[in-house]
């Protein structure tokens, strides 16, 4: 039995402890904002926050999450839109949108650890998140906009 908090809600998991968090979120909790893109920590579509760090839900087994605090895209704006979400909308980042939950969660984690990231910081932090629509320049602009906003 694994106990964790997802978006502030206490949850108890009794299934197969090897199941990755991604499928627990999507299939069991219906939190489908977190996406599947590769299942192998190669694309970042499944990025969520574990405590304050970005993790790939597709390779994070439930067994590793006893006591964890998970935040997904649905939980990010619980108290109004997060500054990163606002910046994303202002810069109009998304195209198809599929990767963007992962991008946003990754950016949130980056700004938590580095409130004023340089170009290199951004490039480094975002290099694991694929956007096939190639919205990368706008992602950079939105991260900078969000960093400016949170001064």
């Amino acid at each position: 039995m694994i106990q964790l908090r997802v978006n502030g809600v206490k949850r108890t998991f009794r299934g197969d402890p090897k199941m990755p968090l991604l499928w627990y979120l999507r299939d069991a909790l219906d939190l489908t904002g977190t996406k599947y893109g590769c299942g192998a920590a190669l694309c970042g579509a499944c990025t969520v926050l574990q405590n304050d760090e970005a993790v790939r839900a597709c390779v994070t087994p439930m067994s590793a999450l006893n006591g964890a605090r998970i935040t997904t895209i649905e939980g990010l704006g619980r108290h109004g839109l997060h500054p990163v979400q606002r910046a994303w909308m202002r810069i109009n980042v998304p195209q198809c949108g599929y990767c963007q939950a992962g991008q946003i969660m990754q950016a949130v984690a980056l700004l938590k650890s580095k409130p004023k990231p340089s170009d290199e910081d951004i490039e480094h932090a975002m290099s694991g998140n694929i956007c096939r629509c190639a919205t990368y320049p706008r992602i950079r602009a939105a991260i900078k906009a969000a960093a400016g906003e949170s001064v």
């Binding site: 999507r26 219906d30 489908t32 904002g33 996406k35 895209i73 998304p94 949108g97």
Partner: peptide
């Protein structure tokens, strides 16, 4: 103008094929 779905995308609304249950 921007996409009708912009806010939905940025807040993780279930919009895609895999989100159907």
């Amino acid at each position: 103008f921007v996409s009708y779905d912009l806010a939905g995308i940025c807040t993780g609304k279930p919009l895609y094929g895999g989100d159907v249950k």
